[in-house]
Design a protein around this nucleic acid. Structure first.
Length: 261
DNA sequence: ATGCCGGGCGAAGCCCGA
């Protein structure tokens, strides 16, 4: 069994104690991290390696930054989303690992937020999503177990937000954003959470402000998208909501899936 | 609430996130 998780930690520096606590109790084999907000030099390798993880980091100072933690050796590590050599934001990292003879390809994704929608940030988000669709097509052609895990900054449907009307104009829920997410799904990816759960209003993010956590005003924006070969092996998927109620929490919580391996 | 909280940077106040 292989357990793969994704978590936007909102600064690895301040979140290291939360991460270590959760790694010990959840015992994931692979973790895709986002929003490190640091360069590789400042990444806290020591306490994480002490728990038995190999680590690949694609860092950036102050903003973005992604990493993959793995109990299995990481091979063929590639940094950055293909398709635009001028893109300097650290939002994508891909690697492969082998579990009992089965290769798994894993990517950690920090998809751009895109707000405000009347700025070039929204255009950057949509262009980034187009590049992700193109790259995912390439990866799907390998016909491997593939897990694209991360903070997509996309609310897939009205069932994934506490107040759809309030989010109607937001870059996370705009028709242009959701159209591209549908395009990504329709090339043949499976939302691991939705494959395991039909209930509405299950969230992965709660804003720090306005008592969003206390009122359960959340959104589901952290996703594990699976190739058919990964979906065939899917055993379970869930959200570790309890982490949001701890001391100095990230505004996102971990989402995990388990696979036959 | 057009960022209410929280983090980075850097040492006050702005930028950013979703």
């Amino acid at each position: 069994m292989l357990k793969i998780a994704t978590w936007n930690v909102n600064s690895i520096k301040v979140r290291t104690p939360n991460l270590i606590e959760w790694l010990k109790e959840a015992a994931p084999d692979v973790v895709c991290l986002q929003e490190l907000k640091c360069l590789e030099d400042a990444f806290p390798f020591g306490p994480i390696e002490d728990l038995g993880y190999n680590i690949a980091v694609h860092g950036q100072k102050t903003y973005n930054g992604v990493a993959i933690l793995s109990k299995y050796r990481l091979d063929d590590v590639t940094e950055g989303l293909p398709g635009d050599d001028s893109d300097e934001q650290s939002r994508y990292l891909e690697a492969v690992l082998t579990v009992n003879g089965t290769l798994f390809r894993i990517a950690t994704i920090y998809l751009p937020n895109g707000n405000p929608v009347d700025s070039d940030k929204f255009a950057y988000k949509l262009a980034w999503m187009d590049r992700l669709v193109a790259h995912a097509k390439t990866l799907l052609a390998y016909e491997e177990p593939l897990v694209l895990a991360g903070d997509y900054n996309v609310i897939p449907t009205a069932d994934d937000v506490h107040d759809p009307a309030a989010w109607a104009g937001d870059a996370l829920f705009r028709p242009e954003t959701r159209a591209r997410f549908h395009k990504l799904m329709n090339i043949g990816l499976t939302d691991a959470f939705r494959a395991c759960h039909t209930e509405s209003h299950r969230y992965t993010f709660w804003d720090y402000q306005a008592g969003a956590w206390q009122k359960d005003h959340g959104i589901r924006i952290d996703h594990l998208l699976l190739s058919p070969q990964a979906a065939d092996r899917l055993l379970a998927c869930d959200i570790d909501k309890v982490v949001r109620g701890r001391e100095k929490p990230s505004d996102h919580v971990p989402v995990w899936a388990t696979f036959e391996a």
